[in-house]
Simulated scan of single mutants.
Amino acid sequence: MNTPLASLGIVLATVAGMEVFAWAAHRWIMHGWGWGWHRSHHEPAGGWFEKNDLYAAVFAGVAIVLIALGTSGRWPLQWVGAGMTLYGLLYFIVHDGLVHKRWPWRWVPRSGYLKRLYQAHRLHHAVHGREGCVSFGFLWAPAPERLKQRLQQVQRQRQQRRTPGG
C-alpha cells in the first residue's frame, strides 16, 4: 500500500483531520485549560511573536517526530507528519497572514470562501475573553449569518443572567 497515491491520500486525510483536531483543541484546550498561552491571541499584539505561537511550535515538534519516525521505516508516519506540516503552512498563511495581518500584505477578501473564513474568524474575536466565542475552526467556517445569530443569542443569555429576576 506504500504507493505515491496512498501517500498523497494520507497527507490530504491528515490535513482534513487536523482541521477537526484543531477545532476541538481550539474550543476545549485553548479556550479552556490552555487559555494561559492562547490569551495573547485575543489581546492587542505586543510584538512579532505572541505566547499563543507556542502551540504552533508544539504541533511542529510532533510533525517533525512523525516525519523522522516515518523516514526511519515506520510508514506511513512521515506522510501524517507531512499532512500536519501542510496544515501548519495553510494556517500560517491564511490565519496569521490573511486574518490577523501578521504579514506585510493588507488584503481583505471581498467574496467567496476566503471572505467567509475571514468574517467567521473576526466574529470569533468579537467576544472579549474566552467565554461565548463562536467559530473555532481555522480553515473551515460556518456561515457568518449563523455565527452572528449565535453571538446575539449568547449576549442575550449573558444579559438575562446579569439582570435580577431575569
Rank of each mutant, 00 (worst) to 15 (best):
F92K: 05
P76Q: 05
E43W: 13
L90D: 00
L89G: 12
V58I: 12
Y91Q: 02
L77H: 01
K51N: 09
A45S: 15
A60Q: 09
L98Y: 01
H41Q: 12
W79G: 05
V80M: 07
V58Y: 09
I67E: 04
H42T: 11
D53N: 15
V58Q: 02
Y55S: 13
A60N: 10
R74F: 15
F59E: 13
V62Y: 02
Y55Q: 14
A57T: 00
V62P: 04
E50H: 12
V58C: 06
H38I: 04
Y91L: 02
V80D: 01
G47Y: 12
F92L: 09
V80A: 07
F49N: 07
G70A: 11
K51Y: 03
G73H: 07
D96Y: 01
S40Q: 08
L66I: 01
W48D: 11
V58R: 05
V65F: 05
L98A: 04
E43Y: 13
A82D: 06
W48P: 07
W79Y: 15
L89M: 11
K51D: 07
K51H: 05
A63V: 01
A68W: 11
L90Y: 06
S72C: 08
R39Q: 15
I93V: 13
G47T: 11
D53S: 14
D53H: 14
L66E: 02
G61D: 02
Q78L: 08
E50L: 11
G97M: 00
A57M: 15
G73L: 07
H42C: 06
H95G: 06
Y87K: 05
G46Y: 10
A68L: 13
N52V: 15
V94Q: 01
W75N: 02
E43V: 14
M84H: 05
A56Q: 13
G70N: 04
G73W: 08
F92Y: 11
L98I: 14
V62R: 08
P44C: 12
T71C: 07
F49S: 12
V99T: 09
G88Q: 10
G81S: 02
G97C: 03
L69R: 05
L90S: 03
H95R: 07
A68T: 09
V80Y: 00
I93G: 07
P44S: 08
G97Y: 00
E43A: 15
E50C: 13
H41A: 13
L69W: 04
V65Y: 10
G46S: 13
G83E: 07
Y87C: 00
G88C: 08
N52M: 13
R74T: 15
T71H: 12
E50S: 14
G46L: 12
L89A: 14
D53P: 06
G47K: 04
G73R: 08
A68H: 09
G61C: 00
I67Q: 03
A45Y: 14
H42F: 14
Y87M: 06
V94F: 04
W75M: 03
Y55P: 11
A82W: 12
W37D: 04
N52G: 12
W37C: 06
F92A: 03
A82P: 07
A45W: 14
V65Q: 00
E43Q: 15
M84T: 08
G46Q: 15
G97P: 02
H42P: 11
G61Y: 01
I93H: 00
P44M: 13
V65E: 03
G73T: 10
A60Y: 11
R39M: 15
L69T: 01
H95T: 01
S40Y: 12
M84P: 08
S72G: 09
G83P: 11
S40T: 12
